[in-house]
Design a protein around this nucleic acid. Sequence first.
DNA 1: CGATCTGTTCATTTTTTTCTGGACAGAATG
DNA 2: CATTCTGTCCAGAAAAAAATGAACAGATCG
Lengths: 183, 183
Amino acid sequence: MPADYAPAAHTDLDSLEQAPASTEAAPLLSELEVEAIDLFISLIRLLGMPKSVGELYGLLFVSPVAMPMEALMDRLKMSKGSASQGLKLLRSFGAVKTVYVAGDRRDHYIAEMDLSHFATNFIKGEVQPHLDNGLRRLDRMEKLLSKFPSENREIAENRLARLRHWHEKGQAMLPWLLKFLVS
Amino acid sequence: MPADYAPAAHTDLDSLEQAPASTEAAPLLSELEVEAIDLFISLIRLLGMPKSVGELYGLLFVSPVAMPMEALMDRLKMSKGSASQGLKLLRSFGAVKTVYVAGDRRDHYIAEMDLSHFATNFIKGEVQPHLDNGLRRLDRMEKLLSKFPSENREIAENRLARLRHWHEKGQAMLPWLLKFLVS
DNA sequence: CGATCTGTTCATTTTTTTCTGGACAGAATG
DNA sequence: CATTCTGTCCAGAAAAAAATGAACAGATCG
């Protein structure tokens, strides 16, 4: 599952590692960076976001310095479009932010270390709407159900009730989850 | 996002609804069924499973009678392959089970109404492995980190520690989540 | 201003995921 | 047994998701 990145060298963070003095074009990512990226790719995928987003966040997470978009594109060998969109998404979740760097008009990105914003925004933006939608659907189903007086109605009503119960459970869980994550 | 199913008639459940006496080939799914299917599709997608799985479970959920695979294929207009694989997956999570029907050698499926098995199996099978994997990666990263004595090491160590903290949080949350769901 | 530099958007291409339908294996039937 | 019936598996087709790169819009600079 995890993409295999070229294990390589010459980062800000690990310029002290053995320099491979490669004859080829310089390799791109240190082992540490590869591990971090892989970690975040799988995390991000679990949340249903594209892997490029995980790459971006992973690299920023271990980078001790702020990086402009171009640097991310170069190091990750990622297109401008993906980088731009991925960073936009990460910003929108508060997982990443830009910092001012004197004498450079590009935006420089750093990873937000406190992921609780991310978690909060993710839940509010991605999970809650699903639940709301589910509730609307449940109501519609109940309405439909009231129209047929068959003997099966009771069965169906029972099942709807169960479903509603699960919905409530989910609904009740989110606030708790948030509290837990922010703790 | 939700697929739009032909709103239609003549199910077991809703044979009492107005019969549209369609001139065409008989329509397939009642409104209620469509709602249920849509609901489960979006739930299932949220968990990263293919939509056909949601269709199967959704239809079984509202069906008052056990259905053989063939019936599911027919009603959902789904191929044998998808049906077979989807049901296999649902069985493996304990979301669905087969019941005996006298004089019919086909397996007849019913939806397991208590979704706590499903939730439990899902967490144990899909989430926990990710966490375990993450832990292994964290350890590897720590080992890598110990190799470079740069001034940046402290920064990196701090970040790893944060990551580990999140990992622990996730780890701690699962048992609680399970308890909550099974309640 | 005109030139350059940054970053966004979006039509197209590429990759990944999902679905399909037929070959197949095993079980029940007669 | 040979035949039919059920369901699984898997190679190829189709659909969906993600990545690319070029056109573009808005700064900023000289």
